[in-house]
Design a protein around this nucleic acid. Structure first.
Lengths: 351, 351
DNA sequence: ATGAAAGCGCTAACAA
DNA sequence: TTGTTAGCGCTTTCAT
């Protein structure tokens, strides 16, 4: 029923070995034979059986991509980049979504990628030590995006630099009380973004000799709702900030909503900077720190392909970010926001 | 180096056939032997070789998922649902992104899924006749999401019903001039959503005996920017609508931006309803038509699994939608928006 | 440059 | 219930 290499060999009048060589473009095949084989293959509509071929070679031409969620903009973009790069090199992409706790546990316990893939790509997944060990036990080229683990290739953005750029932007506008909505929760150590972004925040503040106020740092759990809660709590503190740096755009969106619901305006009453340049950031006119996204997927694939070719040892990429200035940041207004009564409105200067 | 079924057989003191049977849970294996085999396998950390096994069986335990883009919320959600359902049944998911024109062409020409998958899932991809034929030539169980092709299983939402619900909501609020931002561009015939949603729109209008005005239908190309342009053109027409039904949330977001930029307010000046219940719809307080998303992926997988088991012929699912009322819809205000001067505001009656 | 043949690791028919 | 054995379709020495 299905046409095999033997059929092609018969039709081309050569051995199966020659068909194999000819079709894979190996040298040591005369151009004439190669052409004849190609014609036969085309005529029979022949396709190699990947299973037979990987059984024989031990290679699968497949890369496993492990990701917490598809469906979140960021991951989707990175996957796109990775897939394009893989496809171009003749690799297939096997997807493993491990966002849910049980699927995650199962993945690392059973390691379904075993024997199925030549390499692994782990996207933005903060791994526990045990998980790192499980992956390492695979002894497969592995690259991480958004996390850095010794012994593995990784692609990350310059979180420290990005955060301080964001905060510097606020400082340059004249803000002095700058809060941060962070996402440092119970995440395992490999997820360095929250800590790095905090370091960037702190270093920008201290360079500008601004006072350090621990109460200005509040957890938003990297979610929209969390960002909203965090902002609400900042707005109801005794001495609210005039500007907020959110460690992610989603939290910034939540912050914007909290501001709106509080009857305040952004940027007039509070400035907000996000981080990511989420697809909706432009829509919401959010000033934010942009990072190359698709590109990170491409770079990560570059690492594993190089390792597969035996060309390179694991290495790390740090890709740059840049601030995109939009409408949610402005100089602080002259009067404190808690006195927004009509009577005094004349006392306010813009910018 | 790698442990094979023979090693397990040796250790368990049985034949490889028995190991195979025992591990796959086939009957005709005594519980005692099965246990011994399991122990041996566990002790040796044995995993079957998928390539060997599929070479022998002809099955791959893999399903190819073809999608225009990952990275768009909707597709990501559907993929999530599909992946979970597949994983649960022991299938792997091979991802094919064919959004770019060249990757799409390559996919349908070379059909890289041949010999690699047991079934195919096509997500929200309007296929040309030639493409449909290519897929059909695979002779593999195939399911479509968001499109319906004779001979294939499909899962779609009730676009007609959803659209008319949305428009009825506006009508019930008292609107009379209701525009539609659609996405009927050059899409191939399989993508029925734009046309179905238009039918729902028209039927709601005619049931309410509202006049038909072709100039109220404008193309937004299913993108945010397109929606913005479409809204801008509606707002600059001689007789602007008081409400707009956008065929997708993304276009609705664009419409909201156009409204804001025009210095108008939503819903005071114009009401807007979207379609999808995009993750950002809540954030933007957009009234919209919600559809089950993840579930469509699950249902589609159900179809192909049933076909794989030989249990069912291709069939179609039509899943229901419901309107989620949020803050972008309200009764039309008493005065026409082009005369937003206090003097004339009394001259208009509410719906 | 080409061919013969031995696997790769499993499954499934058939025997026992 | 278990074992024997013949493939599944390819790649890769090793000869020629």
């Amino acid at each position: 029923m299905t046409v095999s290499i033997e059929d092609v060999a018969a039709r081309a009048g050569v051995s199966t070995a020659t068909v194999s060589r000819a079709l894979r473009g190996l040298p040591n095949v005369s151009e004439l034979t190669r052409e004849r084989v190609r014609d036969a293959a085309r005529a029979l509509d022949y396709v190699v059986s990947p299973s037979a071929s990987s059984l024989a070679t031990g290679r699968t031409s497949t890369v496993g991509v492990v990701v917490p969620y598809v469906g979140r903009w960021f991951f989707g973009q990175v996957i796109s980049g990775a897939e394009a790069a893989l496809r171009q090199s003749g690799f297939d992409l096997l997807l493993y979504t491990v966002g849910a706790e049980d699927s995650r546990r199962r993945f690392f316990e059973e390691l379904p990628v075993r024997r199925r893939v030549d390499a692994v790509l782990v996207l933005s997944l903060p791994l526990t030590d045990a998980e790192v060990e499980a992956i390492a036990g695979l002894r497969l080229p592995t690259a991480m995006v958004g996390a850095s683990v010794p012994g593995f290739s990784s692609v990350r953005i310059d979180d420290v630099g990005g955060a301080s750029k964001a905060v510097n932007h606020l400082i340059n506008l004249g803000h002095q009380r700058i809060a941060m909505i962070h996402g440092a929760g119970i995440e395992p150590a490999q997820f360095t973004a929250p800590e790095d972004r905090r370091r960037g925040y702190l270093s920008a503040l201290s360079s500008a000799r601004l006072e350090y106020d621990a109460s200005l740092q509040v957890d938003g759990g990297f979610t929209l709702a969390g960002g909203e809660r965090a902002m609400a709590s900042l707005l109801s503190s005794k001495h609210p900030p005039t500007a907020v740096f959110a460690q992610s755009d989603e939290m910034a969106f939540g912050a914007l909503r909290a501001i709106r619901r509080a009857g305040l305006r952004c940027p007039e009453d509070v400035s907000v900077v996000g981080f990511d340049d989420h697809e909706m950031a432009e829509m919401l006119d959010l000033t934010t720190v942009a990072q190359p996204v698709t590109e990170q997927g491409v770079l990560a694939v570059g690492h594993i392909l190089a390792e597969l070719r035996g060309e390179a040892a694991p290495s790390e990429d740090l890709v740059p970010t840049h601030v995109v200035i939009r409408g949610t940041t402005a100089p602080p207004t002259a009067k404190p926001m808690r006195s927004r009564t009509p009577a005094r409105s004349a006392s306010r200067s813009v910018g």
